[in-house]
Amino acid sequence: MGPTAMLDWNQTKRLARSLNLPNVHEDIRSDGFACLHAHGRLWTWWDSRVDAPGFRLPAGERDFLIAADPEIFFVTEAEAPYNHVLAHPARVSPRWILGNLSLSWRALAPSIFVQLFPGEGPPVPHFMEH
């Protein structure tokens, strides 16, 4: 995907699958949006109302991201109660997506998975339940 390519759900799934992490499966959210679950919990999805990918975040990070780059990150009223963020598909970096998905997979994983797939970077973030 080049810098000017428009991200879509298939490309988002390919990025997620390229991490080669176990216990990930495709599903449909209760609101009808296509999604990927990791360890049985929502991991990433495509919000067809705004045609954008959605991601989980550690508590308190969303407001920082939106303030730092509102041209990329935003939230809808439906996602506001959760630690979720949406990203404008023409602007979000595949590198950011991979980093977010790696960290959020680890945060959702039982400790045995984190030990088997330690990854690199900061400690495993903690997500609030939603």
Rank of each mutant, 00 (worst) to 15 (best):
L65V: 02
L65A: 01
L65G: 01
L65W: 10
L65N: 00
L65F: 07
I66C: 00
I66F: 00
I66T: 01
I66L: 01
A67S: 07
A67M: 02
A68E: 05
A68Q: 02
A68T: 02
D69N: 10
D69K: 02
D69I: 01
D69V: 02
D69F: 00
D69T: 03
D69M: 04
D69A: 04
D69Q: 06
P70H: 12
P70A: 11
P70Y: 07
P70Q: 07
P70R: 09
E71Q: 09
E71K: 08
I72P: 05
I72E: 05
I72W: 08
I72T: 15
I72Y: 05
I72M: 06
F73L: 03
F73S: 03
F73P: 01
F73Q: 02
F74A: 06
V75I: 04
T76H: 04
T76P: 11
T76C: 04
E77V: 13
E77L: 15
E77K: 15
A78K: 09
A78G: 04
A80C: 04
A80P: 03
A80N: 02
P81G: 13
P81K: 11
P81N: 14
Y82K: 09
Y82F: 14
N83F: 03
N83T: 04
N83R: 11
H84Q: 10
H84Y: 14
V85D: 01
A87G: 11
A87M: 13
A87I: 06
A87Q: 09
H88E: 11
H88N: 07
P89R: 15
R91I: 02
R91H: 11
R91V: 02
R91M: 08
V92R: 15
V92W: 14
V92I: 15
V92E: 12
V92G: 13
V92S: 12
S93T: 10
S93K: 11
S93P: 09
R95F: 08
R95K: 14
R95Y: 09
W96A: 09
W96R: 03
W96F: 11
W96I: 01
W96L: 05
W96Y: 15
I97T: 13
L98W: 12
L98D: 13
L98I: 10
L98P: 07
G99Y: 08
G99V: 08
G99R: 05
N100D: 02
L101R: 13
L101W: 14
L101A: 13
L101F: 14
L101C: 13
L101K: 13
S102Q: 15
S102Y: 14
